[in-house]
Design a protein around this nucleic acid. Structure first.
Lengths: 106, 106
DNA sequence: TATAAGTGCAATTATTCGGTTGCGCAAATA
DNA sequence: TATTTGCGCAACCGAATAATTGCACTTATA
């Protein structure tokens, strides 16, 4: 059973859950209302998100509020960093080409 | 058959392939040498990456060089943007708290 | 106290995934 | 021309995935 953040965000429903609780903590029932699926299915997604520590829970009586662990989201950003560097470099190179062209025009 | 960029990067082998061809275009055989798996298995990953337009091919004789479509990687960055905003806001809030504490010290 | 509401967990099922093996085809090479 | 090399594709297989259904447990409410 692989359980990393990239596998976690692979599912569109889980990405939607992440997007929702990023704005405010929510209960499984409240979440399920947003999707065309059962509460139990949402619970399963929550379990997966919990297992890779993307979300944390806060019990309030019989309700459980889940909130996003923003810090964990940075892990994706860290992986992306290497590629961001590349496309920024390319942008700078293009920038350079454009300025050379401009010089040649003058 | 779901085929989006998030499902594509869910697999660790595919992320490794992306990382490799980001540096230089490579053939399936060359890629397979980096993994403990068959060329055909790599070919399957390549197919998936191609289907969501994360990579492009360049035929050279009987060899096919695959290169990363950097632009497509930005789609992940775009999705991440909303969360990056949040953690930057939090950071700024923390920053503010710290400066207030500093003022109170003085 | 009896009932309803909110939740997690286990069993089941259809589908997808990642891998292997075995082709066939085109290009390079002997 | 015969053989080797590089490749994609199809068939098959075991494991993982996402969903449903049914249940048990705890907390709120009538």
């Amino acid at each position: 059973m692989r359980r990393d953040i990239f596998q976690a965000i692979a599912d569109p429903t889980r990405r939607a859950i992440i997007g929702l609780i990023a704005l405010q903590a929510m209960t499984p029932n409240a979440l399920a209302e947003h999707f065309d699926t059962s509460r139990q299915a949402v619970s399963k997604h929550i379990k997966i998100l919990t297992e890779c520590e993307l979300i944390k829970q806060e019990q309030k009586g019989r309700e459980i509020y889940y909130r996003l662990e923003l810090e964990k989201m940075k892990e994706i950003d860290i992986w992306l960093e290497q590629f961001r560097k590349m496309w920024e470099t390319r942008f700078n190179q293009l920038d350079e080409v454009l300025s050379i062209m401009k010089e040649q025009k003058q």
